[in-house]
Amino acid sequence: MLKKGLFKRPGNTLEKTQGDNVLPVPNVPETLFTTCKGCKAAVLTNELAQNLYVCPRCGYHGVIGARVRLMRLADDGSFEEWDAEISSADPLLFPGYADKAAEARVLSGEKEAVVGGMMRIQGCPCAAFAMDSRFMMGSMGGAAGEKITRLFEKAAQMDLTVIAFTLSGGARMQEGILSLMQMAKTSGAVKYHSDAGNLYVSVLCNPTAGGVTASFAMESDIALAEPGALICFAGPRVIEQTLRQKLPKGFQSAEFLMDKGFIDAVVPRAQQKDYLGILLKLHAKEHKNASV
């Protein structure tokens, strides 16, 4: 039998120090270790970053910034950002929105929840964008909608495949009905790009919800997802509150959606570059026009 308190951390007298005596800095920098949300283990932050923020112990796919994600996906030095200057407005003058957006800009280091542009993956050119959960949970307002729309339009004109890493709580409610309209706007652009004969691959990341799932995330030719990602229209909390019942384990996970026929494959982050590279090569334009 385990002895009670065996795994208890021995008391640290320094932590208990009160008042003016508080030591200014803890001995271990806070950033040296990161607690994995999946297995709760302390993982070396450096190791985690090298592993694309996937826990080396349990494989949990953690938060990765949009820009880092794209840079790590692109062939060295091939990423060229598009429409970097676009940021959100406050069309409804919604209470507290301006402050929240300013905070998000600091937190994420981005001007908006979407970063996109052109890149090469294993030598194949494509357009790609990623959403950033640190920017108001990746919610889609007018600026995000505009960036995504422009990217599809430009990709259509350049005959480029679009790869989208979706990650969003849904429409940004601080922009009211105008955020809802971004679903229609982006859907129009997806269709325009598609009707021109171009490939669109979405990679649904944790979480993809609401108006983003119900628009461009689910409008791709090929839909991939990251392991364990929550993918839904209505979030689990909303459903549990509405139905007053607990959801089964794994409901609305990437694996669940694949089983139900809405996702082509669950692809771990480390394999995505190879996977997308193969898809790009299979859809290379010379094949399309090859003589029979």
Partner: peptide, 14 residues
């Protein structure tokens, strides 16, 4: 959710 609410709506939009 299981029958693809989001996908059904998205298809209406496009």
């Amino acid at each position: 959710e299981e029958r693809g609410q989001a996908q059904a709506i998205a298809e209406c939009l496009t």
